[in-house]
């Protein structure tokens, strides 16, 4: 199962994806986060950034991207429905991340009932060249790559899985690893057509 996902990811990445320079992505993303940090300030202050609001906004932007990205993902990879959440995790890591940003975060730390796992990012192209602002708060409050959580949440919602994704550690904050926790909340039921009176 794991090797199949890796093979699909590798193949699609090689043959079916248009690529751009990684530094363009890194710098563009950095500019967006920096701009949000300037724009979203605590009420009644001029330059005290509200990092919670920045995290939320990044998540929201990612969510809207995820809702669309999933269609492109499915069309490019030709994959169907996963049979269980473990397979989903493999697909996210070895196909999703591989195809779109050419990394494969490790899946680990499964909960006992297989409904949540950690994605461990050994590399993170979004965070290259980054230093968090030295204001004594960013280190504790800002999740710099939070857009990724939103992307996963949006994409999963389109394939009938409501999940929660959040970072639990980040090397930018001085942690040893960059890890995201993904938890399955529920499977979304098919919507019924409205009743005709």
């Amino acid at each position: 199962m794991a090797t199949k996902a890796a093979r699909i990811g590798e193949e699609v990445w090689k043959s079916r994806v248009d690529k751009i320079n990684a530094e363009v992505v890194t710098l563009t993303y950095g500019t967006i986060v920096a701009q949000l940090c300037r724009d979203l300030t605590v009420p009644n202050t001029i330059n005290k950034t509200d990092y919670n609001a920045v995290n939320k906004e990044l998540d929201r932007m990612g969510y809207n991207m995820g809702l669309r990205l999933i269609e492109d993902f499915l069309a490019k990879t030709g994959t169907g429905q996963c049979s269980n959440f473990r397979e989903t995790a493999e697909m996210i890591s070895k196909v999703g991340f591989k195809v779109f940003i050419n990394i494969t975060p490790n899946v680990s730390n499964w909960s006992k009932d297989s409904d949540s796992f950690h994605l461990v990012f050994e590399e993170n192209p979004l965070a290259d060249f980054v230093e968090l602002p030295d204001d004594g708060r960013a280190q504790d409050e800002l999740w710099y790559s939070n857009i990724l959580c939103g992307v996963i949440r949006g994409a999963m919602e389109m394939v009938q899985m409501q999940i929660e994704a959040r970072f639990v550690s980040d090397v930018l904050r001085g942690d040893d690893t960059t890890e995201m926790r993904v938890t399955l909340i529920r499977i979304i039921e098919d919507e019924m057509p409205p009743d005709d009176e």
């Binding site: 269609e71 499915l74 994959t79 429905q81 389109m158 098919d190």
Partner: peptide, 12 residues
């Protein structure tokens, strides 16, 4: 007539 059907994993 004949009706053809295809559904994506996103329920389109």
């Amino acid at each position: 007539y004949k009706l053809h059907y295809f559904e994506t994993p996103t329920e389109l």
